[in-house]
Structures are given as structure tokens and as C-alpha cells.
Amino acid sequence: MKNNIETQKDKKKVVAYLGDKKLEFSTPLVVGGKEITEIVIKEPNLKDLKAVAHINDDFEQTVVLIANKSGFTIEEMDEIPTHIYMRLRELVKPFLS
């Protein structure tokens, strides 16, 4: 009986949905001619990861995933300031590791 109890303790429940990630700004950011006050990155699923798996460059893979999950075009991503990109990268990093 003790063995069965130890086995049950080792089984951890997994969260089914981690949730979307949001980056809010204290001042508006202009991207694609629009002022935005936040960027929401929807949680990627397996289909999203497959869509970027063929990209060998880590930087480019991250940019495309952020664009796909936040609704930006690649051209709009080019307008994102570096410090904002670095914060967005940290939000999607766990999915690309």
C-alpha cells in the first residue's frame, strides 16, 4: 500500500492553459500608424510552433511567433523598439526552449 501512495504523490497535475501574456505601456507606442497601450500575445499551441519550426534563426523564429500571436505583421514588428522586443521575447521564450 505504501508504494501506491508514493506513486500517487509523484503524479503532478499539469495546468491545461497558461494564459495569454500582456505587456502594458505607460505611454502609447506607435506601430503601423496606430497608437497602442498594450500588446497581448496569445498562448501558442502546437500548430503555432510547427509554423515557425522550419526557421533556423532563433531571432527570426521569435519575431515571427510574436507577430503571429499578437496580430502584428512582420513589417509592423520592424517598428517595435528594441527594449519592447526584448520584453516580448521573454514572454514567448518558454515556448521556444
Rank of each mutant, 00 (worst) to 15 (best):
T37L: 01
M77D: 04
V30P: 05
Q8R: 15
S70W: 05
H83R: 09
V92S: 06
I55L: 12
L88S: 01
E90Y: 02
D78E: 14
L18G: 13
D20V: 05
P28D: 07
E43Q: 10
F72D: 09
V40W: 00
K22N: 10
V64H: 07
F72K: 01
A67M: 10
A51F: 04
T7R: 15
L65Q: 01
V63N: 01
D20Q: 09
H83Y: 11
K11F: 12
E60P: 05
R89W: 00
L18K: 11
N45F: 08
E75H: 10
L29W: 02
F72L: 13
M1A: 15
Y85K: 09
G19L: 02
N68R: 02
K11N: 12
D10L: 15
K9V: 11
P28V: 01
G32T: 00
G32S: 02
L88Q: 00
G32P: 07
G71Y: 08
E6G: 07
K69V: 06
M77N: 05
D78Y: 09
T37M: 05
E79W: 03
D10I: 11
Y17G: 12
D10M: 14
D58Q: 10
G32K: 01
L18P: 07
Q8E: 15
K22G: 07
K9C: 07
E90I: 01
E35Y: 02
A16F: 08
V64C: 06
M77H: 04
P44E: 01
F72H: 05
Q61A: 09
H54Q: 13
K50R: 13
K12W: 11
R89I: 00
E38P: 07
K93H: 06
D58I: 02
F25H: 06
E79A: 05
P44L: 00
E6K: 15
P44H: 00
T62W: 01
F59L: 15
E43P: 09
Y85S: 07
E35L: 04
L18E: 11
A16R: 12
K21W: 03
V14L: 15
T27A: 13
D58N: 13
I5P: 08
V92Y: 03
T37E: 02
K47S: 10
M77C: 11
K2G: 14
T82Y: 13
I74E: 07
I80T: 08
L23F: 05
P81G: 12
T73A: 10
Q8L: 14
E6Y: 12
K50N: 12
L91F: 06
E6T: 14
S26M: 12
Q61E: 14
D57H: 08
V63D: 03
I41F: 03
N4Q: 15
N3V: 13
N68C: 04
K9Q: 14
I39T: 00
S26N: 13
H83I: 03
K42C: 08
V63E: 03
E90T: 05
I55N: 04
